[in-house]
Simulated scan of single mutants.
Amino acid sequence: MKPFCFANDNIISSEKAILHPMDIGLIRGYGIFDFFRTAHHIPLFLSDYLDRFTRSAGKTHLTLDFNKEQLAQIIHELIRRNDLEFGGIRMVLTGGVSENHFSPTAGQFFIFCEALDFPAPSKYETGIKLLAVEHIRAIADIKTTNYAFPVWHSAIWKKEGAEDVLYHLNGQVSESSRSNIFVIKDRKIATPDKHILHGITRKRVLELAPQTEIRPISLKEVLSADELFITSTTKKVLPVTQIDGNTIGTGKPGPITQKLMQDFALMEKENFQKV
C-alpha cells in the first residue's frame, strides 16, 4: 500500500486509516469496491469505473457522499501524492455500524493506492488453466466485497495448478471469480449474458469485437471451444488453454485471442495519450 490514502473525508497517511470492528462491512461482508489501474500517472478508463462504483452504491443502498467529479479530483490528487505512475487504485465503501448489526447505514469510504502485479508473461504466451466449479456470485452485477467462496476455494485451485475458477450452474457458465470469459468457435466470439459483473475490460473488448454474441453459454460449449480467454483489470486479455483436465482448442493461445490482446494494448495506450 502506498503512503497516502483517502479516509475520513481527507487525504491522510495510509497507516492512520481505520475501520470500526462492528462495521457490517466486516461482520457481514457487506460493502462494495472497485479497482482500476494507472499508466503513466493516468487512471485508465476512469469514467467507466466511477460510473460503475456509483451504480453499485445505489443498488446496495449505501450512501456515497461524493459525485463523479469530486471522486476524480480526489483520485488525481492521490496519484500525484503517491507518485503512482503504474499501479492500482481501490475504492471501498462499507455498510457502516448499524443498530441491529445487519441493516446498511452510513458507512466508511476509502481510496487506497497499491502496487500492481500482472500474471507472468509466460501465461500470456501459453495460456492458463481454470477449474470449473458450480457456483454463482450473489448479486453478481455489483462488485461487492464478499469474496468468501473464491478466497476459500483458492487453496484448491492452486493445488491443481490453476489460475482461477470458472463458475457454472445448471450447465450454464457465467464468469470467473474476478474475470469475465469469452468463447470462440468457428471464428465467432461469444460471452455470457447473465449472472456476471459487467467488467470494464469486457466492455472494451466488446468495442473491439462488436460482432460478439452476448448470450447463454453452456459448459459443454466452453469445453469444445477453439479459443477461450478471460478479461479483467488486472489480467487484461488472458488466454485460457485448459479447463480442469480438458485442453481448449490446440492447447495454445489462438489467433483471434492474440489479435484482441494486441488491440486492447493499443486501446489502453490511446486512452492515456488522450488525457
Score class of each variant (00 low, 15 high):
61 H>Y: 12
70 Q>E: 11
18 I>W: 14
237 V>N: 01
200 I>W: 01
164 D>H: 07
221 E>Y: 08
206 L>N: 04
77 E>Q: 08
23 D>A: 08
67 N>H: 08
263 D>T: 01
137 R>P: 03
85 E>L: 10
240 V>A: 02
26 L>D: 06
25 G>R: 06
173 V>G: 05
23 D>T: 10
135 H>K: 09
57 A>Y: 00
7 A>E: 06
13 S>T: 14
162 A>G: 07
212 T>I: 05
195 H>M: 13
183 V>Q: 03
93 L>P: 00
263 D>E: 12
103 S>Y: 08
169 L>G: 12
232 S>I: 07
200 I>N: 02
118 F>M: 13
179 S>P: 01
161 G>K: 02
256 I>S: 08
132 A>M: 03
54 T>S: 05
179 S>K: 06
63 T>I: 14
146 N>S: 10
156 I>S: 13
59 K>W: 13
153 H>L: 15
5 C>V: 11
4 F>C: 05
128 I>W: 07
238 L>A: 02
183 V>C: 09
163 E>A: 09
97 V>P: 01
8 N>K: 11
123 K>Q: 14
180 N>A: 03
108 Q>E: 15
83 D>K: 10
92 V>D: 00
233 T>H: 02
216 P>Q: 08
193 D>G: 11
148 A>K: 14
169 L>M: 14
9 D>Q: 13
162 A>T: 09
228 L>W: 03
259 K>D: 13
25 G>K: 03
230 I>K: 05
223 L>K: 13
57 A>G: 02
67 N>R: 06
216 P>F: 12
217 I>P: 00
222 V>N: 02
256 I>L: 10
105 T>S: 08
142 I>A: 05
148 A>M: 13
20 H>D: 10
101 H>V: 15
224 S>I: 10
228 L>I: 09
176 S>V: 13
211 Q>R: 12
146 N>G: 08
33 F>H: 10
126 T>M: 11
245 G>L: 13
23 D>H: 06
189 I>D: 06
228 L>M: 05
91 M>C: 07
127 G>L: 00
79 I>G: 00
120 A>W: 15
